[in-house]
Design a protein around this nucleic acid. Structure first.
Lengths: 159, 159
DNA sequence: GAAATTTACTGGTATATACCACTATATTTA
DNA sequence: TAAATATAGTGGTATATACCAGTAAATTTC
């Protein structure tokens, strides 16, 4: 196995930078596999979540993605522009907007799914299938509200 | 321990989205702790790496960060503007530019180091010290060129 | 039920990060 | 050494993502 490419780095001490650095590389790796679809990996993930969510309100989608609501809105813009997703008003609460895939979006998602499977299969092959599943669970833990609470409460005592 | 906030998500299957999602949350968490310094956590990381690197060429810094060279250039802009880092020409190869902290940058780094320590301590407390170190090593593996090679070679056989 | 507050979303602005095309240097080839 | 190629960085453009300041609609308070 190869070693890191510099003798010393912030990522040897800082969990955040370690995660960000790995995330950049992994993003690149998946991105390359997804490239033929024209979708960025982030966009594919978003489409997946929208598909799973069946017209989820933006707010809930943002929470699920652990993303700022306004950030989500901006990220959705290119997808709306390209006619892959659309917003529909909620019937009962007129503040709420729900997101769904258009037919075009659904088709592109389906067409891209095979590429994603290929990328994920490569990851599992390189990293180990069990380790991969394990990693996903660990990441889910870090992304959970409970972890955030534990982190924030872990200092002395603050508000 | 808290569970994930939605019944089902792409991150349960996709290692990339799992990593990105955790990375967003963790970034936010560190960011909040660093806030009093005025530095983003990414900027602090960059300053740290520049400090460790002792006038590293941009190219090498980008590789160490696992970041695109032009992306690095753009990320450095606000730091240059604020007088925290500066570029110096290499003596032997006039294409090369080396990055270093200014005195101001070095001072700000020192002043911010305590906040970073606090954030890292909170992470270790919430996640477990051994698990934390383990995670950093795992992330370093994923970020390594060797892993990228294994991933890319893991498909059938392509270029 | 009118006023105050909270909630969901939008738009502006700033940083993070990628790719591509271009420029200036170096290095390699012939 | 002149031409071809490779390397390092810059600037443009596009997406990713955050915060803040609105706006509009719902909910709560009195």
């Amino acid at each position: 196995m190869a070693e890191s490419n510099t003798p010393d780095g912030a990522w040897n001490y800082c969990s955040n930078s370690a995660l960000k650095r790995a995330s950049r590389q992994l993003g690149q790796l998946y991105e390359d596999v997804l490239a033929p679809s024209g979708l960025k990996i982030t966009q594919y993930t978003l489409l997946t979540q929208i598909k799973l969510g069946r017209e989820t309100p933006l707010k809930l989608l943002a929470e699920a993605m652990v993303m700022d609501l306004s950030a989500l809105g901006h990220t959705l813009k290119p997808l709306q522009r390209d006619g892959l997703v659309e917003l529909v008003a909620d019937d009962h609460d007129r503040r709420v907007k729900r997101v769904r895939l258009t037919q075009k979006g659904d088709k592109l998602w389906t067409d891209t799914n095979g590429l994603w499977r290929e990328a994920q299969a490569r990851f599992d092959a390189a990293f180990g299938k069990d380790a991969s599943e394990n990693l996903r669970r660990t990441m889910d833990l870090i992304a959970s509200p409970g972890f955030a609470a534990a982190f924030s409460g872990a200092g002395q005592d603050q508000d």
